[in-house]
Design a binder for these strands. Sequence first.
DNA 1: CGTCCACTTGATGGGCATCAACCGAAGTGG
DNA 2: CCACTTCGGTTGATGCCCATCAAGTGGACG
Lengths: 268, 268
Amino acid sequence: MGAAGSLEMENRTTDPHGMRSLRPNAGMRTRRYCEHCQIRDRALCSALSSPAASALSEIAHFKQFPAGQVLQQSHQDPSWYAVIVSGVVKLVKTLPDGRQQIVGLQFTADFLGRPFAASSAFRAEATTSLLLCCFPKSDFESLLHEYPCLEEALLRRALDQLDSAREWMFTLGRRTAREKMASLLFLIAERLARSGRERTPEETQIEFDLPFSRTEMADCLGLTHETVSRELRELRERGVIGTRGRRTLVLPQLGALERLAGGEQLEV
Amino acid sequence: MGAAGSLEMENRTTDPHGMRSLRPNAGMRTRRYCEHCQIRDRALCSALSSPAASALSEIAHFKQFPAGQVLQQSHQDPSWYAVIVSGVVKLVKTLPDGRQQIVGLQFTADFLGRPFAASSAFRAEATTSLLLCCFPKSDFESLLHEYPCLEEALLRRALDQLDSAREWMFTLGRRTAREKMASLLFLIAERLARSGRERTPEETQIEFDLPFSRTEMADCLGLTHETVSRELRELRERGVIGTRGRRTLVLPQLGALERLAGGEQLEV
DNA sequence: CGTCCACTTGATGGGCATCAACCGAAGTGG
DNA sequence: CCACTTCGGTTGATGCCCATCAAGTGGACG
């Protein structure tokens, strides 16, 4: 799927962004659609008082982006905050010499933006096609001062992200390539399966499209894309994962993956 | 310095904890001492409205801990929040198989505690002798609901910590042992020098005691203590750092260290 | 059908872990 | 006061995991 081709994809009849029969266009006001929003119960707005929530909906509008789009260059002023309705965003740090590390992944219902700083030190980039619920920067910051519950909701999310980041620091520092790979696949499976789109309840085996290229997975894990490729093969040959094409992953047993990620050896 | 011996040390005439002539004892009320507090302009309380600040001072009390003391076991209920008056705290994740990674470092004026969660997934441990300004858990949480400015102050700090954690993720994933070592020493130098105790303004070269053992530094960097030892020797032989004893570090040129940390090669 | 690009697979080597021995300072007990 | 122990740290020898370099594969697309 090329970056240019994905905008049209969003307007298919079977909407991949989970807005039911709605087909939002860039700039559309959210206000009257919040009631249909599928992430309403999980996103930032779910934690707000009802006046705060409706004030937020007043300033919200949808925006679409194709895969690969840079949402926010590092050290540049952002013009909006957002909640991810669907799609995946990576936060990347790149050095002049080309070394690169993905330092954050944001999935459906996650918050995008860095309050209280002129800019972020990291580049935000869409790894899949994206639907965002955006809030203009200054409007959002006004609400932040007006409604303490909004600050509390952001604080809760920031602390959760901090915990996740620290867990990932362990993975980067102390796990082997095999374990890193299993950790990442497990994390992706949890986030994508939980989003409700890729998994129907009666399915025992999980199946979904990887939102990342091999190189992006390597950049998550502090590895090379060659090593990622080799480890995927190894996992496939051991029956821990299955693949269909390059992007589709089949997980017959999430538990095996989790054990491998935790550091235990597979008894085969 | 043994763990048992350091409590007495805190009561020397030249107080290492920066409370001037005061010699606080465990349980002492802070209220009347806030005006003398040396971190008053940098800690959490500096960002609060004056009613919030005085409410906070009402519930504060000092507490001392020796080096090596576990402040908070992972997955256990904490009984207080705190601000570090002096000393260094590490946040550690340990696996049953013994693998260990330090996922956070807290220095003077940093906040300790994990609001909105029953417990933290990480163990908090003093790496040096410690003076904390503690707030009983439930009292502090009441203030959190009462004063939005307290939530905002915590949010700002959480976001800063998140940025730091992400920067460190790059170090763990993409830097060499040499660069990791330089990054850590640079980070420590910045935090300890900024605290104002180890550095007088007219000094061109910085000198301070490392708050970590070789093993702890290795646990920060995802290395072994042998590699840390070797890299320190290498840095010493190249003149980037100097050492006196095992714990005292002399940095004649902070810039060289920063360049090494950034990934540039030393032109020697 | 040719080109492109993500990905795969193989060969080789280096950076860092691992294992092991040694050192020196601090504590301990006779 | 001195042997003995302990423990953090240093240094060396060896090996392995994963990076690097290189070539090949297959699907997408013009």
